[in-house]
Design a protein around this nucleic acid. Structure first.
Lengths: 192, 192
DNA sequence: TCTTTGACTTGACAGTGTCAAGCTGTCGTG
DNA sequence: CACGACAGCTTGACACTGTCAAGTCAAAGA
């Protein structure tokens, strides 16, 4: 019989933090609330994380795992055509940014997150590799990095500008994708 | 004889906040420290700003003014050639992001900033117009928005990825610009 | 002269991250 | 079995944060 091992306190803390972030955005995520949600005292997290940046880093790493999963889902839904798959990845990227703004913020722009952390690096690299795989059909070894970075910069900038846009209309529009799709086609121009 | 009018307390508060941001990044900027730096009591700012987001918004607006000034400087240094001027603008953009990460963060990604504020809108639109002017020589009325958004997204995404990059090497590299320049040329491909 | 008003201070409050000390059950060793 | 070590967690305190209520005080208006 398969028994689900009970989650460690550390895991529960990370999950609790991610939940708070999903529910109430950046402001809802605090050291003490995370502890309370995980059912431990306000100082318990200190046993697993040296300080707040450490906790944030672990949460961001777990968020990248979910991010990867959502991009893969969007890619696979797009079918077998390489162009459609790349568009799908980007759509997944933009949809995630639009839906989970607080999480996206922690992942990419929160300055206290330690981006040299091993787990964080593994998780974020994993996300990058998903993008890379979808760019591969359009690259030669020579211009691989260039295309990857062009796509990555564009979709990321697009998501950011969408998030900071004052009118919600525009914000919703970024997950409708048509305008970004034309930008992507520009980058892919001349490639098969 | 020209007398410089004494700065109002409100102006001193905004300047103080911007200074704190420039010196110590996002974490150094607090309501109370801003008040102290401006030489008033910790509750004085409440007379001019309803709450912290209000103050942050005003600081972000002033930051956009400086941002515009730096882009104009970079543009004018680039000489009269339209292509060189667009490259110059982008270089100014990336240099500002790399040098003043904390300020850049408040301007673009701090979620509590009120982006519907009138002053903020005026200041950020002004920055956008500088970019637009430099894109104009490469546009027809039909594809104006498309090119502007392509350039804007790319340079912004590029700056963001540079800021979040783990190794400082790469971070410095974003103001050296060669790799972004090739991306820009990709976007401009076929335009004169 | 009295009142009002704007600019600011003082003092308090709950909530924050962090640190120090103490408690408790488990485990390895004598 | 007894004892010490120790991980895991709690309690309590600290300085600091943003915010609010009340008070001070000088200038302006009636």
């Amino acid at each position: 019989m398969n028994v689900i091992p009970p989650l460690s306190t550390r895991d529960r803390l990370i999950d609790a933090g991610l939940e708070l972030l999903l529910e109430g955005g950046t402001e809802a995520l605090t050291w003490r609330k995370t502890a309370a949600r995980a059912g431990v005292s306000h100082a318990a997290p200190a046993h697993y994380f040296s300080a707040l940046p450490d906790l944030l880093t672990a949460i961001a790493a777990r968020a990248f795992d979910r991010f990867s999963a959502e991009m893969i889902l969007a890619r696979d839904r797009a079918g077998p055509n390489p162009r459609a798959r790349l568009h799908g990845i980007c759509q997944g990227y933009l949809a995630f940014a639009a839906t989970h703004a607080g999480v996206f913020h922690i992942m990419f722009t929160e300055s206290t997150v330690n981006r040299t952390d091993e787990d964080f690096g593994r998780a974020s690299t994993q996300s990058y590799l998903i993008l890379r795989d979808c760019c591969a059909p359009f690259c030669t070894p020579d211009d691989r990095e260039e295309l990857e970075f062009a796509v990555w910069s564009s979709v990321h900038g697009y998501a950011m500008l969408g998030l900071q846009s004052p009118d919600a209309q525009k914000r919703r529009a970024i997950s409708n994708i048509p305008p970004f799709a034309t930008l992507l086609e520009k980058i892919l121009a001349g490639r098969t």
